[in-house]
Design a protein around this nucleic acid. Structure first.
Lengths: 113, 113
DNA sequence: GCAAGTACTTGGCCATACATAGTACTTTCA
DNA sequence: TGAAAGTACTATGTATGGCCAAGTACTTGC
């Protein structure tokens, strides 16, 4: 039980939320997402992102189209489905409630520390 | 991939943070923590809390003493160790950075939606 | 004694983040 | 032309941890 491991655990599920948000903003492919996540200091690696995108696609939350690239193999450009948009709304509620609950607990603590 | 499951995933790791906070506030036993977590709408069940406390204890982040109860079996009253207090500081940083990163991503999204 | 309530324990299941290695396509350049 | 490098995506295996469900142990009250 170390700090690094807990950071990983904290990220679980939240990543899915962030990625759906990024996709909701317009069509993007994996490297775009990695750039955005990295610039927000939400560390992610390929081995995490690609399986997640596959899961989202298999659940019908996102869809993609192949687009040829001028510098390399074709890319999968993702966008949200209607189902994905609904799911994102639900996730937003979940996240906000989770943050709120955590603040309620930790703020109470700070008064006594 | 449903909402419930994602809620579970989002809780991962965060629970540990919340529980350390609650313990940092004074000596408590498991049912106290469950009450507090429930009142903050952070849903937890016994099967989650007890193993977590055991992990925290085995890692030397918390310690406990047995205290007899007037209504039932004796209780384990937990408190933070010095190591646990340090760990909690690290977790606080991690959590705040995670919230910040998530806000950075989701706020950008809200401008286009 | 025996049932009911409280507190804690244990074993197994499942989802997911990550490491690592591998596939496939394109461009570059000798 | 064909080998090397770069880009994009895929597949497999491991570890962690939340949860379910069943179980143990102690106390109280009938």
């Amino acid at each position: 039980m170390n700090l690094e491991n807990t950071q990983v655990q904290m990220r679980k599920g939240i990543l899915e939320y962030c990625i759906l948000h990024i996709i909701s903003r317009g069509e993007v492919y994996a490297s775009d997402m990695l750039d955005e996540l990295t610039s927000a200091r939400m560390i992610v690696v390929e081995g995490t992102l690609y399986p997640l995108l596959t899961r989202l696609k298999n659940s019908g939350l996102v869809e993609y189209k192949w687009v040829e690239s001028k510098s390399g193999p074709p890319r999968k450009y993702y966008k949200l489905t209607n189902l994905g948009a609904d799911f994102l709304k639900g996730l937003t509620d979940t996240w906000e409630e989770l943050v709120h609950s955590t603040e309620q607990i930790t703020h109470k603590s700070q008064t006594t520390v």
